[in-house]
Design a protein around this nucleic acid. Sequence first.
DNA 1: TCTGGGGTCCTAGGACCC
DNA 2: TCTGGGGTCCTAGGACCC
Length: 412
Amino acid sequence: MIIKKEKTILHIDGDAFFVGVEMAKNPKLKGKPVVTGEERGIVSALSYEAKAIGIKRGMPIFRVKRDFPKVIILPGDYKAYVKYSGKMFDIVRRYADDVEEYSIDECFADLTGLERLLKMNYKQIAERIKKEINDELNISVSIGLAPTKVLAKVASKYVKPNGLTIITKDTILDYLVKTPIEKIWGIGPKTSEFLKKKGIITAKDFVTKKIDWIKENLSQPYEVLWSELNGEYLMKIDPITKTVYSSIQKTRSFHPNTNDKVFLLSQLSKHVEEACAKARYYKLVPKKVSFFLKTKDFVYHEYQISLTSPTNAAEIIIPLIEANFIKVYKKNILYRTTGVTLQELVSDSVTQGDLFGSNNLAKKFEIIHEQIDSLENKFGKHMVYLASTHKAIKRKEKGTDSEDFDRDLLFI
DNA sequence: TCTGGGGTCCTAGGACCC
DNA sequence: TCTGGGGTCCTAGGACCC
């Protein structure tokens, strides 16, 4: 008989991560109400002090300025967040071999077996990791320890900020009874609404249901969730650092909402250029491209195009979108968002060697793009762009007075 | 919570085939 | 011509995540 050894999974979650990094960069901000997201026009992260006075994630920046004049508003510094994120994960890797970088401010790690190796118990290991992150990076994190990933997520959320919560197989229900079902990782608004109608209010209500009930009423991923919440380790730690994307998306919302065809097309054109630049950076080419318009009532109208030959040349993709634009566009509807997605990305080496058809054209563009991409690296984004994108850039500049300088524009 | 931008994965159902 | 049952592949779109 095989006795399965209980796993010990660690989950780390940065506390108000973006703002935490800003405070580490500039300690004078500590203890103050601070938000980031100035460049986006909505609050993307907020300090606990800002939360305490009633600011919420997603709140428009103009409202923060108007109603909370004392709040410090900062633009996001994504490069810094990536840097701190990497350092945080490196600290975890001092202890664990298998670290999964789940998002910019979260990771999972498998600590199983480290007790004996490090001559510390799991709690002491977690405390050490936490202290090193605190001391070396000057940011605070919350940690959860549990037998599964889903339970580790419950644990890290349980005490925040600066928490350390340990769930063992024996104490699972003690924690789940105090966790509302909608707080569980993987249970969103639709499913929690459904479950509540069935009388399932807390995570304990969920796990104490029979598995047959789950199978009858929900789909496969929820069976996995149920097992994980019951302490059965199913979701593996995936330590592979993701540099490959399966899709690349660029979207933008605008207000006022509009039905200006030319404007919408120029937005889409810009998205294609940005998405293609990213694809080229990662040496990926899409087999499919889709674009969408989202109406002011949040209804998506999407159209998907299969490329006869995969390409990341915007010059090829843009005309395809223009040709199919009328399939989603209605002239009497106001739109709030446009977006482009490059789908089914494959390595660009796969398509090399095919010198026929539109791929041949793509080759020519490849040479131009190498030069454009290196120009942009030197001088910043939007030094160079397609004429079809021009309108989108111009309109954006009108809104921001700070960016009012002449650029050397190069139209292709 | 009147809602930003960038992702992943699963499933139902249609097309097509034997 | 009508009919049954089964498989695979693809697609759209739903749901969820940070």
